[in-house]
Design a protein around this nucleic acid. Structure first.
Length: 302
DNA sequence: TGCGATGATTAGGT
DNA sequence: ACCTAATCATCGCA
């Protein structure tokens, strides 16, 4: 910027008491503008050059409940965010420069006019504030669209649904084993969930999600899961047989296993009596027979 | 590429 | 807080 113009701007500043550079930020305490500013600051788009963005990304990733450090996606997110940030800053600078230049231009015109007519400081102030209002509304739009872009970016990268990965085969195996061996009451306790989570290398809430999904899907279409149920029943039968063999050697007077009340969904009379079903499955497994169908094709009990 | 499977989210209930 | 049920969005296979 040319020194001559700059001195003019300083002159305006002195005369009007307006801050030319940052008029938009400090003049009206507009709540919406403040919201936008706060959000941009929180997302690391506005504010200090480095660190903010990654902090926001890390916080968001933590909120999304991602235990592994998917650093590839992270850096991708950061790259996109800094792209937005760069665009935002260059645009902002462009607007400020344009605002200043335009102000200078108007001031020059007023100066020339001052040779032919008297110009009051009031008039100058009015002109300058008009210009600033115009430019700050443009700036508001910029901030708004930047916020939108960040929100879209966030939803694309940080929405857990978008980066869903199937659990490992082992994990699914472990979960299924638990589910089918507790079919009469497939509601693991907090401790059980923690243990399953540990075994499967997933979070406790993922275990809860899995059981929630499994219960509802099993209930909806038991027929579909029959084969799977048989498979895991056989599997647990083998381990149970080992355990039983060991137990029998110790004592013959063991109390019977826990009484089963049946798989009952909350608030619903939905007695599967699946413990009995499982026992049938097991005995059939051992005798080589195939279990009699216990459920109708629509999933209801016969 | 279509479609079923599947993990995550949401709304509404207790 | 935890559940069910519906739904969303992606995965993975034929």
């Amino acid at each position: 910027m040319k020194p001559a113009l700059f001195s003019v701007l300083c002159e305006i500043k002195e005369k009007t008491g307006l801050s030319i550079r940052g008029a938009q930020e400090e003049d009206p305490p507009d709540p919406q503008l403040m919201r936008l500013d706060n959000m941009l600051l929180a997302e690391g788009v506005a504010g200090p050059e480095k660190g903010g963005g990654s902090a926001a990304a890390a916080a968001a990733a933590a909120a999304a409940g991602s235990p592994t450090d998917n650093s590839i996606e992270h850096s991708d997110y950061r790259a996109k965010l800094s792209q937005i940030r760069q665009i935002y800053h260059t645009e902002l600078e462009k607007y400020e420069q344009a605002c200043n230049e335009f102000t200078t231009h108007v001031m020059n015109l007023l100066r020339e006019q001052s040779r032919t007519r008297p110009i009051s400081p009031k008039e100058i102030e009015r002109m300058v504030s008009i210009i600033h209002r115009k430019f700050s509304s443009i700036q508001m739009q910029l901030k708004q669209s930047t916020c939108e872009a960040v929100m879209i970016l966030r939803s694309r990268f940080l929405d857990a649904r978008r980066k869903r990965r199937n659990f490992s085969k082992q994990a699914t195996e472990i979960l299924n084993e638990y589910f089918y061996s507790h079919l009469s009451n497939p509601y693991p306790s907090e401790e059980a969930k923690e243990e399953l989570a540990k075994k499967c290398s997933i979070t406790v809430s993922q275990v809860s999600n899995w059981f929630g999904n499994k219960r509802i899907r099993y209930k909806k279409n038991i027929g579909k899961f029959q084969e799977e149920a048989n498979l895991y029943a056989a599997k647990t039968a083998v381990t149970a047989a080992h355990a039983a063999a060991a137990a029998v050697q110790n004592s013959q007077t063991n109390s019977p296993t826990t009484p089963n009340s049946g798989f009952q969904m909350k608030d619903e009379e939905f007695q599967l009596d699946s413990a009995e079903n499982k026992n049938t499955l097991l005995t059939n497994m051992f005798t080589g027979g195939y279990p009699a169908p216990c459920y109708q094709s629509d999933g209801r009990i016969q």
